[in-house]
Design a protein around this nucleic acid. Structure first.
Lengths: 218, 218
DNA sequence: ACTTTACGCTACGATACCGTATCGTAGCGT
DNA sequence: ACGCTACGATACGGTATCGTAGCGTAAAGT
């Protein structure tokens, strides 16, 4: 009952430093295949739908092999989730509005067409109750808010934004409506919408002098 | 195997119109108890955690009785979810900014302290894949965006907003950041934050004349 | 009082899923 | 060529959950 158990307790790829320099091809292939099938299944059915048996079926990798690589289903899912998506790069359009439009458009495109985003509600639901999922998610989220922080910091340096601007609030104003649109209001998430949001957050919809003035186009 | 099955096929409260005028007290008590336990459990554990056995345990109502009232677990959950929360009322502060601040503050308070809101990610996750859950949710969502539509329409009538304002976009700009803050960035959702969002959406953070001007306080 | 209706309880059958045991086989390094 | 390591297949044990059957009992309605 200890470590000598033949099946699951001897984990592959854990013998010498050779495993790092010239890893066993069988191991890397198994891990990659399993992780690919897992992320695909996650996208289709969410966390609760990502079953070890189903992952085994799709990947063609035996269930026992899966458990040789990850001690538990949750560990596999955490691992797969932490590798989700590709980070956004901070654009440089020359001014803040251009940067913001470019970045929110990219985010909008990602939210509406990258399949993996459909697992997010499931993760967020789990994060509501399980702290380690919350940790994993916050690192993920960090990655997607970082470029926004970057363009805001640059705009602050250049004086394009008031010095007392709260970055977190501005990020929420820029990106929040996109997430909202995708999942809460479930309306079409177009580039035009993203642009309108940026204009609203930056410029405002109301003429500066108050009411009853000629409205400015947005 | 037909309708004559003694247990679950004879649904309580379905005999005469007497059931509507003077309903059997046992029936109303059971339904209420079950629904209460269900919503409480939903808040704590989400859709997948709301188990019929656990609902039975908490409510003290026998599992068979539950199935006498709802043909299936999903029907019970849909029913409970569709009754979630209490609608927001549209305020009347005299001007749009006041209305918007009052309403977003109310929404922020709800999102951070009403227990039932913690079931939303779970619902949204299910809505991603199951159309009937999506329908149920959209009716729910409708209820919470309606007062925003009301104050926007009023502001449009009074000329406080440009005539070409897109209500859906403005609603997204006002409420999206709150939802975002609650679930996606997981930062504190204060009234002050709500107020800053309203100021951003309405007034804008950037001085009208462009960059390098004296920033206006927000 | 008598009937109808609703409820409680226990016990099931049927799945689905997790994680492990066991044994045989194939690939990899040396 | 030989041993070590990883993989595949099958079969389990254990648990959770859905939904139903079959009873007896209590509370309404008349």
């Amino acid at each position: 009952m200890r470590k000598g158990s033949p099946t699951s307790k001897t984990r592959p790829g854990r013998s010498a430093k050779r495993d790092i320099e010239a890893p066993d091809q069988r191991v890397v292939r198994s891990r990659r295949t399993i992780l690919d099938a897992t992320t695909q299944l996650l996208s289709e059915r969410g966390l609760s739908g990502a079953t070890v048996d189903e992952i085994s079926r799709r990947s063609g990798v035996a269930k026992t092999t899966i458990y040789r690589h990850w001690p538990t289903r949750i560990d596999l899912l955490r691992d797969a989730c932490s590798k989700l998506g590709t980070p956004l790069e901070a654009p440089d359009a020359g001014n803040f509005e251009g940067d913001a439009i470019a970045l929110t458009s990219k985010l909008a495109r990602m939210l509406r067409s990258a399949q993996w985003t459909s697992v997010l509600p499931s993760i967020i639901d789990a994060a509501e109750r399980e702290p380690d999922i919350a940790d994993m998610y916050s690192r993920l989220q960090q990655g997607y808010s970082a470029p926004f922080e970057a363009i805001i910091r640059r705009a602050l340096r250049k004086g394009e934004l008031p010095a007392n601007t709260d970055a977190a609030t501005l990020i929420a104003a820029l990106t929040g409506p996109l997430f909202y649109r995708r999942w809460f209001s479930r309306e079409p998430l177009t580039d035009a919408f993203a642009k309108r949001i940026v204009r609203l957050a930056i410029g405002g919809a109301v003429p500066r002098g108050g009411s009853n003035h000629k409205p400015q186009m947005i």
